[in-house]
C-alpha cells in the first residue's frame, strides 16, 4: 500500500537515546502520507512515553544497563500509531491523575507532566500487559 511507513527500533534504557526515538518518529511521519502538521506534537508524545518508561518502569540509570525499549512505529494517510514495549515494572498511565498546573507550580514539582502531554496530544493511550513481553503502551493519533 502506498503512503504507509513502518519502523522498528530497539534502544538501550538510557536518556541519551531519546534523540534516536525523535528521529525515528520524524522519519516515519515524513515517509508516509500522514500530514506533517502534527509532527512536533507526536514527537513530543512519544519522547514523553519513552522517558517515562526510563524513569518509572526501569528506574535504572546504570550506563552499563542492558535493559531495552522496543518501539514499533506506523503511519499512513489516516493515522500514526506507536507501540512501545518494555520489560520493567508495570506502570499504568491511567492511574495518574491530570495535574492542576497552578498547584504543580506552587509546589515546585518538576515531574509528572509527561502523561498529561501524552493524553492531550494523542487520541488513544492504552496500556496492556503482553505475556512474554510485559508492558506495552499503544498510542494513536488520527488525522482530522
Amino acid at each position: 500500500m502506498t503512503g504507509t511507513s513502518h519502523k522498528e527500533l530497539i534502544i538501550p534504557n538510557l536518556t541519551k537515546h531519546l534523540s534516536s526515538v525523535r528521529d525515528a518518529v520524524t522519519a516515519v511521519v515524513q515517509e508516509s502520507e500522514f500530514p506533517n502538521t502534527d509532527m512536533h506534537r507526536i514527537i513530543l508524545a512519544v519522547d514523553e512515553a519513552v522517558a517515562n518508561i526510563m524513569e518509572h518502569a526501569y528506574e535504572n540509570r546504570d550506563p552499563e544497563s542492558k535493559l531495552t525499549i522496543n518501539l514499533m512505529l506506523d503511519a499512513d494517510s489516516t493515522k500514526f500509531e506507536v507501540r512501545i514495549q518494555d520489560s520493567g515494572k508495570e506502570f499504568d498511565p491511567s492511574d495518574i491523575q491530570t495535574p492542576d498546573i497552578e498547584t504543580h507550580v506552587a509546589a515546585g514539582k518538576r515531574s509528572g507532566l509527561g502523561i498529561f502531554l501524552m493524553r492531550q496530544i494523542m487520541d488513544e493511550v492504552k496500556y496492556t500487559f503482553v505475556s512474554g513481553v510485559k508492558n506495552e503502551l499503544k498510542m494513536i493519533k488520527y488525522v482530522r
Binding site: D47, E48, A51, A107, K109, R110, L113, F116, L117
Partner: peptide, 15 residues
Amino acid sequence: YISSAGAGVFIGSLA
C-alpha cells in the same frame, strides 16, 4: 526542542 522534563526545571525554579 523542549519536553516536559525541560519545562519542569522552570516550574521547579519559579517559586
